[in-house]
Computed example of a mutant assay.
Amino acid sequence: MTRKVTLGARLSPVLAVFALALPLHATPVDDQLVIEGENGPVEIVTEAPAPVHLKGVLETIYSGWRFRNAETRALERDDFDNPGMVFVDRGRDKWNAAIGAKGESCASCHGGPESLKGLRAVTPRVDEKTGALMTLENYIDTCLTQRMGLESWNWTSTDMSDMLALISMQSRGMAVNVAIDGPAAPYWEQGKEIYYTRYGQLEMACANCHEQYFGHMIRADHLSQGQTNGFPVYRLKDAGLLSAQKRFVGCVRDTRAETFKPNSPEFKALELYVASRGNGLSVEGVSVRH
């Protein structure tokens, strides 16, 4: 059974030892990100004032890019060097392919992928017609199953990763701006509760690493604020592309807890909340992390 307790002032024994080993001060690197792409350079905002809802918690928010080493940061500066661009190219091939039950393609309805510019910057969001909380994966799945007569793609499949990469690229450089009020409010509150709840044998919450100890080292990894503006992410450690929810799975398992599944109500709510913590940072399209 998953162990779950609310995050309070008390540290678990594991975190107490971890905290004693940390340096007193740790900051993200002072660097700027300008990406050279096929349409010219794109300046990426990697530092911004924290959203109002984080008042008293964080003053400044930083992209995870600012917490990586120089070699990893350099890979994202040029699309020619970025290994994640392979997934974008494959996504473009799928976009134009006649994969529907009646020969439909994504292009036959939407035209070019640039027609979805801005979608990545505002998702997850609540659909006006259905009232459902929708991630990019949900929109892709709706097109596949309701408009093209296909079976759902697995949420962590190569096909889904390719399409996520292509669609996310269309919003590169745009500010993350997910809504947290109105119909999104109850989902946002659910995600916030999950963020601050301890899980697993290690009794750790998202906030323990990404709020209390960002900038410090945990083993060989430099802890970031856990922002999702860079997702999908090409992670060098995994030699593959990860969605936000796929990374959530890894984080929860690291606490030695039974994880929620991708596309679960819990992870969709958590993705909305975590995305809102990065409102104001730029969508990076396909980022590189280690």
Rank of each mutant, 00 (worst) to 15 (best):
W155I: 09
Q170R: 11
L164C: 02
I140W: 07
D159H: 11
T142A: 14
M163Q: 00
A185D: 13
S168I: 05
A132E: 15
L164E: 04
E137Q: 13
L166Y: 02
G182R: 08
T145R: 14
E189H: 12
I167E: 00
Q170V: 07
N177D: 14
G182Y: 02
Q146P: 00
T135Y: 05
K129D: 15
D141M: 15
S171V: 06
S152I: 01
S168L: 06
C143D: 02
D127W: 04
G191V: 05
E151P: 07
S152G: 13
A175G: 03
I140N: 04
M160G: 01
D162K: 00
L166G: 02
S157P: 01
T158Q: 14
G149L: 07
M163H: 00
A184I: 01
A179M: 10
T130L: 05
Y139M: 13
T130S: 15
T135R: 12
T135H: 09
A179G: 08
W153S: 07
E193H: 11
S168P: 08
T123K: 09
T142F: 13
R172D: 06
R147F: 12
S171L: 10
L133K: 00
P124K: 03
P186N: 10
P183N: 03
E128Y: 09
D127N: 13
P183E: 06
P183C: 05
A179T: 14
T142K: 13
A175N: 08
S171C: 07
N138Q: 10
M163L: 15
Q146R: 09
E151I: 04
T158I: 10
A165H: 05
G149E: 07
N154I: 03
A165W: 06
A165M: 05
W188K: 06
Q146H: 02
I167C: 01
A132Q: 14
W153Q: 08
G173P: 04
R147A: 11
D162S: 01
Q170L: 03
L144C: 11
Q146N: 05
D159S: 13
D141G: 07
A185P: 04
I167L: 06
W188R: 06
Y187L: 06
T123R: 10
G149H: 09
D141H: 12
G173Y: 04
M169H: 09
R172L: 12
Q146F: 01
T145W: 10
W188L: 02
D159W: 07
E193M: 11
M160T: 00
A184C: 02
G191S: 09
N154G: 15
M174L: 15
W188G: 04
P183F: 03
D127Q: 02
V126E: 05
R147M: 12
T156W: 06
N154Q: 10
A185I: 02
G149A: 09
L150N: 11
G173M: 03
S171Y: 06
E189N: 11
T123G: 01
W153T: 05
T130W: 08
G131T: 10
E151D: 14
D141K: 13
W188P: 03
T156I: 08
A179C: 09
E137R: 13
D181A: 13
R172N: 04
T156M: 13
